[in-house]
Amino acid sequence: MTAALKITGLTFAYPDGREALHGVDLTLAPGERVALLGPNGAGKTTLVLHLNGILHGGAGRVEISGLPVTPGDRKAITEIRRRVGVVFQDPDDQLFMPTVAEDVAFGPANLGVRGDELDHRVTEALTAVGMLEHRDQIPHHLSFGQRRRVAVATVLAMRPEILVLDEPSSNLDPASRRELAEIIMSLPVTVLMVTHDLPYALELCPRSVILDAGRIVADAPTGELLADGDRMAAHRLELPFGFDPSAIHRR
């Protein structure tokens, strides 16, 4: 079976010379949910921006279900951006249209979807995140948690094969955090989730990888990884106070 996502030997340096990725290798099987962990500045967001060809120019290769990400090829890149749905960290960056419905329609409209089919996509995506009754609202009038959910819907409307979430649980209250987890788990897609929220990683993702200083330094079942105190400390990862790694191991 072709991998949902296959990254080989990916390197990248920003124009100011800052090297953010130093040869990343990572493969995700279809339907897998994987957490991407790592300290601030490790290169997680940089890696995410490579998955749909927004950043490029270094060595290495990224493939989405066998289709290579080739930045020059406009048609291929549109298909890549359909397959890879990226939910950014700040929902205000992602919700740039005047109303919720128009925002959710933006992606599929760029793919050429029109008319009733477009309406259907919007309804479907908003239903999936439980935000249908807010379709005509202004993003600014939604709570943060609601905006995050709409941000997920904007991507779902493109019917992606891989959902990439950059710190989805940040700034959410416990109830919104749980609701979002339920939404993510209900989706039949491959998930790559960047997070600093280790219990969230454990809850949602059977497998985790650690990125540090531009390299993948660990790749293991999430419970095992979180229980390995030395390895965690080496990469500046800390469990919340009172969170017992041995208890989670058995879950």
């Binding site: 124009p15 100011d16 060809g53 927004i54 950043l55 490029h56 120019g57 930045p71």
Partner: peptide
């Protein structure tokens, strides 16, 4: 003022 102009690799 700046003679060199860096261009970001964004497409």
């Amino acid at each position: 003022r700046a003679p060199i102009r860096a261009k970001a690799a964004v497409a």
